[in-house]
């Protein structure tokens, strides 16, 4: 696995989505890329690979691979629990990874925090 994931197609799509839809600056986005990098290390996958496992190409677009999405949803939950800090901070980190999937077209919802 390379250490520089910033220039991958899916990370670029994420950074652009963060900027366009959510008004998150590139600098701020890059800090989140560092969190994604930790997640990638946990699952031992490249960002593009993660998205490829959640989406497959079909005629006229893409389809979600339910199995892949479920797999990564579970890994994100594990990732959250492996992080230090309060429930809110753990969730925040997990949400950065969810955001990466979501901005790449992988619809994903999560339980509200109690």
């Amino acid at each position: 696995m390379t250490t520089d994931i910033e220039n991958t197609k899916t990370v670029q799509a994420w950074l652009k989505g963060l900027e366009d839809q959510s008004g998150v600056s590139r600098d701020e986005g890059l800090q989140r890329v560092a969190v994604l990098q930790d997640f990638c290390a946990l699952v031992d996958k490249e960002p593009d690979q993660i998205i490829a496992e959640c989406l497959r190409e079909v005629e006229g677009g893409k389809k979600i691979r339910a199995k892949g999405r479920r797999f990564y949803a579970d890994r994100i939950t594990e990732f959250e629990s492996s992080i230090g800090g309060g429930a809110g901070e753990k969730r925040q980190m997990g949400n950065y990874i969810r955001s990466f999937l979501i901005h790449n077209g992988v619809l994903l919802q999560t339980s509200p925090l109690s």
Binding site: L18, Q21, S22, G23, V24, A87, G88, R91, N95, R98, S99, I102, Q109, T110, S111, P112, L113
Partner: peptide
């Protein structure tokens, strides 16, 4: 609206951005 959605998402622990 966007500020509200952020705040509500934060409150509920949902992805904000």
């Amino acid at each position: 609206r966007k500020e509200e959605v952020r705040a509500v998402s934060r409150m509920l622990g949902l992805p904000e951005e």
